[in-house]
Amino acid sequence: MEIAVIGNSEFILGFRLAGIQKTYAAEESDAIADLVTMVLDDAEVGILVMNGEDMAKLPLRMRTTLSDSVKPTVIAIGGEEGGLSIRERIKRSVGVDLWK
């Protein structure tokens, strides 16, 4: 399982420095939507990290798909609309609340 990160160049820079190889830079919402589709089709990706503001720009249908996705688990960082907490996403994907 690999981690993929989609966002603007500033957003993905830290993830690149941390050693994550599947980082995709996109500034326009159309490009972000295309990259999300590509990552969803990649069987090796287990976690998708996105900026919450970029996620809010996606079409409603795609946001719903991302919110309901278990594989890859989608984590929105920042922005007002981050969806479920990381704890809830881990609980959904693993099936157990690891904090208890």
Rank of each mutant, 00 (worst) to 15 (best):
L98P: 06
P72C: 08
M38Y: 07
G46F: 06
L13Q: 14
A76G: 11
R92N: 09
I47E: 01
R87L: 07
G14V: 11
K100F: 05
D30P: 01
R89P: 07
I20K: 04
I3V: 14
M38F: 09
V74G: 02
L40C: 06
K91T: 13
A33H: 04
T23Q: 00
Q21K: 15
E80Y: 03
D34M: 13
L60C: 00
K71N: 14
S9E: 13
I20Q: 01
W99C: 07
Y24T: 02
W99P: 00
D97R: 12
L84R: 14
G78R: 05
V94L: 15
L17C: 09
G14H: 07
P59T: 00
L13V: 10
E44L: 05
P72Y: 02
T65A: 11
V70K: 15
A4V: 05
W99G: 01
G19E: 05
P72A: 05
L35E: 11
S93A: 13
R61G: 05
K71R: 14
M50V: 10
I3G: 02
D30R: 15
L35Q: 09
I3A: 04
N8S: 09
D54Q: 12
E53R: 12
A76Y: 07
D68S: 14
E27S: 15
R87Q: 14
K91H: 13
T73P: 02
I47L: 09
K57H: 10
S67T: 11
G14N: 11
R89S: 04
V96A: 09
G95E: 12
L58N: 00
F15L: 03
T23Y: 02
D97C: 06
S29V: 13
K71L: 11
E53A: 05
T37F: 06
V74L: 04
M1F: 13
I20T: 01
M1Y: 04
G46W: 03
L48Q: 06
L48M: 08
T64C: 00
K100L: 12
G78T: 04
I47F: 04
Y24R: 01
P72T: 06
S9F: 10
L17P: 01
A56Y: 02
L35N: 05
A4E: 03
I3Y: 01
D42Q: 01
V36C: 04
A25H: 05
F11R: 00
L48V: 07
Q21G: 15
G83P: 01
L48C: 10
I90A: 08
F15N: 03
L84A: 12
L40G: 00
S29L: 12
T23F: 06
T73A: 13
I3M: 06
G19W: 12
G7H: 08
T23C: 14
D30V: 10
L60M: 09
G78K: 01
S67I: 02
S69G: 04
L58I: 04
L84S: 13
I12L: 07
S69D: 06
